[in-house]
Amino acid sequence: MGDATAEEKPQQPVKRRRGAARGRILNAAARRFYADGVAATGIDTITAEAGVAKMSLYNNFDSKADLVCAYLQARHEEWLDLYRRRLAEAQGPAAGVLAVFDAYADHADFAYEHGFRGCGLLNAAAELPTGHEGRTVVRRHKEQVEGLLAAHLRELLPGRDEQARSVAEHLAFLLEGAIVRAGLEGDGTRMRHARDLAASLLDAL
């Protein structure tokens, strides 16, 4: 019993250190990928910013491609958290639709190193080759966003599922266009304009 305990004790700090290193690496990668692009950001740059050895990166991620996918998934989860916070304050299905727009505006308002550059997921996908797993992560995010819009709209338009799907697609396109313009202009103003347009459309349904 004493020998087993002695063997187990050293393993716990190692686990905690690896967990902390993974978080530092992922945070550093998120900053550099968004500010400088995926292709322009090398492993050495990420490990230097994270303050870890290169071996630590490969202890936590199989490859740069694996790190890119983890970054994209983390950004998706970050957006979902913003959406859930907005949804908690929403009253009714129309407000649920607008919570999606508010979450995008909140993401645009983050204090990015070089200002807002548009959707980090789409920016990364544009650099990735066809077939890269990261593109699948991005596609699923966009599909989920449109699915959330459709779910709120089905509640708003009971028995009119086809119209709900059509309006959800329309609003998804509005979101994408607004975020591209917001990225070009460097702030979230276009996202707030898009929200106002969405609110007007919902009022007309």
Rank of each mutant, 00 (worst) to 15 (best):
E127Y: 03
R160H: 12
R31Y: 04
D106Q: 11
A35M: 05
V68Q: 04
W79P: 03
L174S: 04
R165Q: 14
A150L: 01
G2I: 12
G2W: 08
I179G: 00
T41Y: 02
R22C: 01
R160T: 02
E89S: 10
A48V: 07
A65R: 09
A30G: 09
E133R: 15
F173Y: 12
A103C: 05
R32P: 00
I179E: 13
I43P: 00
G51Q: 07
R192L: 12
R75V: 10
A94T: 07
Y112M: 03
A126R: 15
Q91V: 15
D81W: 03
N27F: 00
A29D: 03
T189H: 14
E8K: 13
L201T: 11
Y58V: 05
S200D: 13
E113F: 02
V100S: 08
S166V: 12
R160K: 13
E8H: 13
H141G: 00
L153I: 08
A182H: 02
L67T: 04
R86E: 15
G177M: 08
R165Y: 08
E78D: 15
D102P: 01
R192E: 09
Q91S: 15
G120D: 03
H132A: 14
A28M: 05
V97H: 05
E77Y: 00
A151V: 04
W79F: 14
G183Q: 03
M55Q: 15
G134D: 01
K54N: 10
A103Q: 02
R32T: 07
F116E: 04
I179R: 11
T41Q: 04
W79I: 05
A39S: 13
E127A: 04
F173R: 13
F33V: 03
F173N: 09
L72P: 03
R154E: 15
R139M: 09
G147M: 06
A30C: 02
L156Q: 10
A99P: 05
E89W: 01
T189A: 14
L57F: 09
V100A: 12
P13N: 10
A90R: 07
E78G: 10
D3R: 14
